[in-house]
């Protein structure tokens, strides 16, 4: 790693005074004069170790007081501080009882060692795992270059890449926990350097590369996530999460899905279906939602919803397998909610 100085932030305001760049901006602009945040630091140190990010200063936000609480209220819902670790989420009984798909997603994510370090804020703000993006030898479009190496029909190694919304960068978002958060209609609470607070739905938090290749989410250098909030689940809501990986022990997602439904009897009244590792950002499948809403949750209707979700898929040369994989897990996840 390059030499950098270390600043221990006292407060959110203090941290925001220090920082002058997001990691995405610095990866795109290469000023080597950036001051960036880190909490758990797993993603930031990964970039610094590769030499792709050479910060001048790292601002440690991990010890800022007040960002490490989980609170649940039957009426208000759930609040998870941005510095809460993945392990604290995985072992929280209220999250398991009321937000099962989120519990399952966190339990499938990462390793015990990393879960003790990684924070939720860092998890949703981490960068995609495209090997070209993370390689010093490939100046891809996300890093200010002029091409996408993964897309190439003959030489592109794109087996882990996007099958939906892949007209620009073909990477997939790395946070499988975000798949579940978005399905629960979570929002991100963000504070800026003026002390102003805004609440952004997860649906609006991530930025598609087709819109802006230099950003993976809406955060600017003068903004910090303080908490992630989830509405209270209704009495008749059920949820399920399924993730497919190459290795059973732990791995990045090849395909994952979170389904949250509101039912009356066997009929689905409302559905929230989100796909992970399908598109450059977590993808809400309006197609699947429409196909299952106001239908009885049974095998035929689950298959129809899964097929509707995949009707828009445009696989690359090496990731065609994802279409039947998604079809299968969407169907299974819908059926698991009964």
């Amino acid at each position: 790693m390059n030499k950098f100085s270390w600043y221990e932030a006292k407060s959110v305001e203090d941290a925001l005074q220090q920082v002058n760049s997001t990691v995405s901006e610095e990866l795109y602009q290469h000023t080597n004069k950036a001051t960036v945040f880190k909490s758990g630091g797993i993603d930031v140190f990964d970039w610094v170790k590769e030499g792709l990010l050479q910060p001048e200063k790292i601002v440690n936000i991990r010890n800022i007081p007040g960002l490490d609480k989980i609170s649940y209220d039957q009426k208000k819902g759930l609040s998870i501080g941005s510095n809460v670790t993945l392990e604290e989420i995985a072992s929280n009984p209220e999250i398991k009882n009321n937000y099962l798909a989120l519990h399952q997603a966190v339990n499938h994510a990462s390793t015990p060692q990393l879960r003790n370090i990684s924070t939720l804020g860092g998890n949703i703000a981490q960068h995609n795992r495209c090997w070209y993006f993370r390689s010093v030898d490939h100046q891809c479009r996300r890093k200010g270059g002029d091409r996408c190496f993964a897309r190439h029909s003959e030489t592109g190694e794109n087996e882990n890449h996007a099958i939906i919304d892949n007209s620009s960068c073909v990477s997939v978002h790395a946070s499988s926990i975000s798949t579940a958060l978005m399905a629960f209609n979570a929002s991100v609470v963000i504070i800026n350097s003026e002390g102003e607070k805004k609440i952004v739905s997860m649906d609006d938090f991530f930025v598609s590369p087709a819109k802006d290749i230099g950003m993976e989410n809406i955060l600017t250098a003068k903004e910090l996530i303080t908490e992630i909030i989830l509405p209270a689940p209704s009495k008749n809501s059920r949820s399920a999460y399924i993730k497919e990986v190459a290795r059973e022990s732990y791995d990045w997602s090849l395909a994952d899905v979170a389904v949250v439904v509101e039912v009356s009897g066997n009929t689905c009244r409302k559905a929230s279906i989100v796909l992970g590792a399908a598109a450059p950002v977590p993808y809400r499948s309006l197609e699947a939602q429409q196909a299952i809403e106001n239908k009885i949750i049974n095998n035929d209707n689950a298959v129809a919803a899964a097929k509707a979700a995949m009707a828009i898929a445009k696989p690359l040369a090496k990731n065609g397998y994802k279409v039947p994989m998604f079809t299968s897990i969407i169907e299974q996840a819908i059926l698991q909610t009964t």
């Binding site: 030499k3 100085s5 270390w6 221990e8 006292k10 407060s11 203090d14 010890n63």
Partner: peptide, 11 residues
């Protein structure tokens, strides 16, 4: 070492 509002390093 833990004093908030302080800068350490890079040396």
């Amino acid at each position: 070492q833990l004093a908030a509002g302080k800068e350490f390093g890079p040396e």
